[in-house]
Design a protein around this nucleic acid. Sequence first.
DNA 1: AAAACGTATTGACAAGTGTCTATGTATGTG
DNA 2: CACATACATAGACACTTGTCAATACGTTTT
Lengths: 91, 91
Amino acid sequence: MNTKDIAVICKALGDNSRLRIIQMLFDGEKCGCKLLEDFDITQPTLSHHMKILCECGLVIDRKEGKWHHYSVNENTWNEFCYHVSSLGKVE
Amino acid sequence: MNTKDIAVICKALGDNSRLRIIQMLFDGEKCGCKLLEDFDITQPTLSHHMKILCECGLVIDRKEGKWHHYSVNENTWNEFCYHVSSLGKVE
DNA sequence: AAAACGTATTGACAAGTGTCTATGTATGTG
DNA sequence: CACATACATAGACACTTGTCAATACGTTTT
């Protein structure tokens, strides 16, 4: 994970809706329709946000029938946290 | 520091130039003209980025004569890192 | 087969962003 | 004073972004 990857993830987290989605997903895997209940956005907008979160590697989309179960990619998240906090450490 | 504050900081870090600036500032306080040497951007563009970094609280601007010495606000940074990594901890 | 449900895609739009050139402001120097 | 230096502001521009309505797609149920 390099500087650009970090910037892309930060950008993905730099939106209130997406940050709240990540927070909710840390509480456990959720499907899109469940997430949609807690937001004042339309389904296409949520779909757009989920695409961004998946593409940067932060979220995993587990498809099951007509449902999409979204969850935080712990590996990406941990690596991201590690690299961010490493910025402040003198080498 | 609440969710919106985190999002604002993430947004500020979600730009390659600004993220590199933060990295450079962790190496020590630097003035604008010194930062400018390492980037292929104009002075007004750098000024724009510094404004965003200062306004979200990540960077401190210490004015001394005609120079502006920029440095990372350690308090904000630590609080940010703490809150970000806390997202992944089950409460 | 038809209808219902969960999600994605398309196309449109206003608002925001990163960048530039040109110019202004403040401070130091001859 | 006049000039140079460090930085900010204003205005413009192309590009991106968040959002929506409309529609399409895939799956399940009736």
